[in-house]
Amino acid sequence: MVTRAPAKTFETVVIGEMLGPHAIVITREQARNYALACGMSTPRFMSDEDARREEGLPAMLTPGNMTLGILAKLVTDWLGSGSGQLARIGTTFRSFVHPGVELTLHGFVTHTDQAARSADLDVWMENEDGERLVVGTATVAFGPAE
């Protein structure tokens, strides 16, 4: 298990601060179960064989929303259980994410806004070759100063 960080406060956020890297493997079962829970029973999310036979893909895929959710969790784990909240996250899906391969999650704090008490972050998921498969940005907002 990745240990949750202590609750992050706006005052302790530093531009350049790194999130991760964390290595993960999304299993085929996890990807399939996620798709089924979302009502997406298309072949590409069911098995390698279904993806190849029915859709001509090299292997089954991880649902895009699942990878987005994993990157969102990278941010919320970093925030901890304080006043900081994930206000926005947006991702670009640049390449297929196949389950069963080692992936690494990365993030950086890139900007802070003193007046809004918010911070912007880059986040991405890359494979073992360092190819960034899913990239995005997020904004976290903190409550009023105590």
Partner: peptide
């Protein structure tokens, strides 16, 4: 200027992240 690949903290499945 791309750095060599870092050695990430390892976990084992998506649910561990």
């Amino acid at each position: 200027f791309r750095p060599g690949r870092r050695s990430p903290q390892r976990s084992h499945t998506a649910s561990d992240v």
